[in-house]
Design a protein around this nucleic acid. Structure first.
Length: 422
RNA sequence: GCGGUUAUGGUGAAGUGGUUAACACACCGGAUUGUGGUUCCGGCAUGCGUGGGUUCGAUCCCCACUAACCGCCCCA
């Protein structure tokens, strides 16, 4: 039996890789615009990093990690997300001592979670994320959001919705958590089994439940907003004011909870238009305790991550086709053995002059060579036969309008360079 | 981890318990002895996800497995 690709993974085939390259290019462009520098960290890390960073009680750590032991008995994990690694590197390389503060970083790369695959959910998926470490200015929370939105808009997405919430500082969170437990506990028997479990583990999640969302206690549940300390409330106000000032609209959702333990204060999600149930394109927020949790000095941090796979779904459902520009400039069609030799030489010359060129290697007839040129969307076809060899000129055909011209072999490169703009 | 649907060539898909598994697109060749995107003609699955079983015989019936898709949970 044929060996198949592992479950939940996929190949990006040549016909699609141009789109991926384009997306990555726009991501890098956007980061340059916002002055974020790339960081590349390993694809696997110590299991401990994620247990401590992401949080031991999260679903990610409890059931979705790809863990393995290497030959040296080290406990390692394929990274399920990017922030923990970035913070680890930040601490390990003592970037908190860098004169350039805050430290603004981005990454693009594969992440791994053991999950049941479905639309927009894979076991290996690709995240583009950014992190700003070392500043607790609410304006940088807004910058993070602006970066993600700018990236999406550059790609042409229009149907975007920003959802915003604040989880407050640890003090606020604790007060709210206690309030939730008190609110639901007396009648928890009326809720689904999942919610009963959530009561002690993570009462916030009860508010997310789809089964019980009609229960009267849902509407009257205490909102985190009411439990924010003055300081946390003021911080959140500043974030909103900054967003208002730069014209970014948002929707407040006090039930917006993120799945990773490290979040506090601002959390946000960007939703997009997708055909199916999953519409969260990006998620992020502030994680002020994480750096010290991982052994660094008390350092503030904000970040987001977005999935390229989900972005592709959103692009498709908005009917956007990215321009990739992988077309060939020139295809050489040769007739006869002598012409074949000449074509090989010309081909090399064209390429050295920066012209994307190719020729036939299957001994096809002229017609077949033209078909091949057509498939490659070649802008020009250079025909070389006995006649051309005799007078030292190639027959250059413009494939768009069908016109043909004779051009001396020596001038072909210059001729084509003038016609092609890239 | 749970539930539903599905699995035939490069692609989309029809089909039957029994000699050659429709059709369309794509591809290859020819008509057009040196010119693509139009037209016409021809070629193109010893094979119907994998492994078992029932049967004289299975792509079609039964079981298991695997995978994909959709939903739940959760998330990007």
């Amino acid at each position: 039996m044929l060996i198949q690709i592992p479950r939940g993974t996929y190949d990006v085939m040549p016909e699609d890789s141009g789109v991926w390259q384009k997306i990555e290019e726009v991501a890098r462009e956007t980061c340059a615009l916002f002055n974020y520098k790339e960081i590349r960290t390993p694809i696997f890390e110590s299991t401990d990093l994620f247990q401590r960073g992401v949080g031991d009680t999260t679903d990610i750590v409890q059931k979705e990690m790809y863990n393995f032991t290497d030959r040296g008995e080290r406990r390692l994990t394929l990274r399920p997300e990017g922030t923990a690694s970035v913070v680890r590197a930040f601490v390990e390389h003592k970037l908190y001592g860098d004169p350039q503060q805050p430290v603004k970083l981005y990454y693009i790369g594969p992440m791994f979670r053991y999950e049941r695959p479905q639309s927009g959910r894979n076991r290996q998926f690709t995240q583009f994320g950014a992190e700003a470490l070392g500043s607790k200015d609410p304006a940088i929370d807004a910058e993070m959001i602006a970066l993600a939105l700018t990236f999406y808009r550059k790609l042409g997405l229009k149907k975007l919705k920003l959802v915003l919430n604040s989880l407050g500082d640890p003090e606020s969170r604790k007060a709210h958590r206690d309030a939730l437990i008190n609110h639901f506990k007396p009648s928890i028997g009326e809720f689904c089994s999942d919610c009963q479990e959530r009561l002690e583990k993570n009462p916030l999640r009860i508010l997310d439940c789809k089964k019980d969302h009609g229960h009267p206690l849902m509407a009257t549940a205490p909102s985190i907003i009411d439990y924010l300390t003055d300081e946390a409330r003021d911080y959140f106000e500043q974030v909103k004011l900054t967003l208002d000032a730069i014209g970014i609209t948002y929707e407040l959702d006090p039930t917006l909870v993120r799945g990773l333990d490290y979040y506090n204060h601002t959390t946000f999600e960007i939703m997009g238009a997708t055909g199916s149930a999953i519409s969260t394109l990006a998620g992020g927020g502030r994680y002020n305790g994480l750096v010290s949790e991982l052994g660094g000095p008390e350092t503030a941090g904000v970040g987001f991550a977005l999935s390229i796979e989900r972005l592709l779904i959103a692009l498709e459902s908005e009917g956007i086709t990215l321009q990739t520009g992988n077309q060939l400039d020139c295809y050489l069609a040769a007739i006869g053995a002598e012409a074949e030799k000449k074509a090989a030489v010309l081909l090399h010359q064209l390429r050295q002059n920066g012209i994307r060129a190719d020729k036939d290697y299957l001994g096809r007839k002229v017609k077949g060579q033209f078909k091949a040129a057509d498939r490659e969307q070649a802008a020009y076809v250079l025909v070389i036969g006995d006649e051309e060899l005799a007078n030292g000129q190639a027959n250059v055909k413009n494939m768009t309008d069908g016109s043909q011209e004779r051009v001396a072999f020596d001038e072909v490169s210059t001729y084509l360079k003038n016609k092609i703009n890239h």
